[in-house]
């Protein structure tokens, strides 16, 4: 599948090296020091990392949608607007939603829980299994996402996902943000802000927004690093996976559900 360039590898290394030197040396504007992201990133993401999220549902506030808004902004999801001739009902069923707020009531105890629902980043994702072209993929670091270059829009992954985490783009998109290329006819879902994370960021957009609003319900981090905040929190509190009976070993965990 992947085409190899006729570009000699040395050129690329040389370029990267020069970039690194120039970048680390040059203080281009006062007060801004440039550093190289992912030094030695030729290998790309590694399986020594597994990105995950822990959601403390006790802290998730009723009626708050800061995470949803932040996700929409980060990924340019709200750039897609309702086609003029579409009904509100259908638009609501068709518009992409990477993350959504859900309010639940326990049938036994009547306890009400609020939580954000998104791609659960399974270790064994059913969407990846069923995808005919391999466009649905799980990266080495555990992020499950769609390679839209090979997505043919068959929607089989949406049939297979037990969490209804995926959306299909039903109409033309006039504009995108650079970090989130997306277009009509492909399937998409939460990718844990992969471009951000690859750039060296340690938080996702939804986590930042939740933090900013003072709820701190979302904790993102490396579940394989024993010293990370998420690893410690997972050890301390009992958490659960949604639909744990399917044994998909999700990367998104919830406490107090």
């Amino acid at each position: 599948m992947s085409k190899h360039t006729d570009q000699p590898d040395m050129k690329r290394r040389e370029f990267l090296g020069k970039t690194a030197i120039a970048a680390t040396a040059a203080t281009v504007a006062p007060g801004v020091m440039l550093t190289v992201a992912n030094a030695g990133s030729d290998e790309g993401v590694s399986s020594d990392t597994r990105w995950g999220m822990l959601i403390d549902t006790n802290k998730c506030a009723d009626g708050c949608a800061a995470c949803v808004d932040a996700c929409n902004k980060e990924n340019g999801i709200d750039i897609l607007s309702k086609p003029e001739d579409q009904s509100d009902e259908m638009w609501n069923a068709q518009r992409p939603q990477w993350i959504r707020k859900v309010k639940l009531k326990d049938k036994q105890t009547g306890v009400v829980t609020n939580l954000p629902m998104m791609c659960q980043h399974c270790e064994h994702p059913p969407c990846e299994d069923v995808c005919p072209t391999g466009a649905s993929l799980k990266r080495a670091d555990g992020i499950v996402m769609v390679d839209r270059h090979t997505c043919i829009g068959c929607r089989y992954c949406m049939m297979a996902c037990p969490y209804k985490a995926r959306s299909f783009i039903h109409s033309n998109i006039a504009e995108q943000v650079v970090n989130s290329p997306r277009g009509k006819g492909c399937v998409e879902s939460c990718n844990m802000c992969a471009p951000r994370i690859d750039g060296g960021a340690t938080t996702t957009a939804c986590q930042d927004a939740c933090m900013k609003d003072g709820h701190q319900a979302i904790l993102f981090g490396d579940m394989k690093d024993p010293d990370s905040a998420i690893s410690k929190a997972l050890k301390e509190k009992s958490s659960r996976q949604i639909r744990a009976d399917l044994e998909l070993n999700t990367g998104v965990r919830y406490t107090d559900v």
């Binding site: 599948m1 990846e128 299994d129 069923v130 995808c131 005919p132 072209t133 391999g134 090979t150 997505c151 043919i152 829009g153 068959c154 929607r155 089989y156 299909f168 783009i169 009509k184 006819g185 492909c186 399937v187």
Partner: peptide
């Protein structure tokens, strides 16, 4: 009915053998 029928060639050349859909092709 595919979202991207123009990419039929992708479906014919890129296979994920875990997918029953790919086997069906």
């Amino acid at each position: 009915d595919l979202g991207r029928p123009d990419r039929l060639i992708v479906a014919m050349t890129t296979y994920n053998f875990k997918s029953i859909f790919a086997w069906n092709v």
